[in-house]
């Protein structure tokens, strides 16, 4: 297993946001994490990448305990993430944004910039390299966050709502890129309200409701699971 989460609990005062969650993520897979609003999906991602320290439970990545480690240590261990709303560095140029995840690299700046330019060319943004982050459109910011992830090159990627507010053409590109990267050995946890995308891309889906795992299984099973339908639509 690449990632193992056992008995994970995260509380905010009296609210139990993640309640005794158990996860096992195999290498080179795409795992969908779905659930209604407030079900604890993003909180779970925040626990995995170290933004939140859970009250209980363990998180193992490559057989090493990572809960309690600082977010940058977890990132450097190989877990990258994106955010619901793209969190690019808005007062920095696009090239500087792409340098951010490789500041510890032993490669010289010139090579890193070349690599960044190559990635930008792939998404037709090379001419914007000297623009500031806040000069980009919403879609371009999503693309920049994605390219930044490519520069970071983590083994495991936590994708938080990558398809929200995204044009269908861009969405299709993201689908292809996720599948391509999975083929290259990357592992994904995909949080999304876009159920069609999650069903299409994921090998396994985990459903959260009120912080608890209420179902897990293959997409074709989850689609027709009564507990999932009830969680989304109510009785």
């Amino acid at each position: 297993m690449l990632l193992e989460v056992e008995n994970l609990t995260k509380k905010f005062g009296g609210l139990i946001a993640v309640d005794d969650v158990f996860l096992e993520i195999r290498k080179e897979t795409i795992t969908g994490l779905i659930g209604p609003n407030g079900s604890g999906k993003t909180t779970l991602l925040n626990c995995i990448n170290g933004f939140y320290v859970p009250e209980n439970g363990t998180i193992r990545y490559k057989d090493k305990l990572i809960q309690g480690m600082k977010p940058h240590q977890i990132a450097n261990a190989g877990i990258g993430r994106t955010f619901q709303v793209p969190r690019i560095f808005k007062r920095m140029t696009i090239i500087e944004n792409l340098m951010a995840p490789v500041l510890d690299s032993e490669l010289p700046d010139s090579s890193l910039r070349e690599k960044a330019l190559e990635y930008l060319e792939r998404v037709n943004m090379a001419e914007l390299k000297d623009s500031l982050g806040d000069e980009l459109s919403g879609g371009q910011q999503k693309l920049l966050e994605y390219v930044r992830l490519l520069m970071f090159d983590p083994d495991m990627v936590l994708l938080d709502e990558p398809f929200s507010g995204v044009h269908p053409v861009l969405k299709s590109m993201f689908h292809n890129e996720i599948l391509r990267l999975r083929e290259m050995g990357k592992t994904f946890i995909l949080v999304s309200h876009d159920l069609v995308s999650v069903y299409t891309l994921s090998e396994e889906i985990i459903v959260l409701d009120l912080g608890k795992v209420i179902a897990r299984g293959k997409p074709e099973d989850i689609k027709y699971d009564d507990r999932v339908i009830e969680a989304y639509l109510g009785r």
Partner: peptide
Amino acid sequence: RCIRDDYEAAEAMG
């Protein structure tokens, strides 16, 4: 400057 713009995103970038 990453920290200035968004310190959590900076942490997530290592």
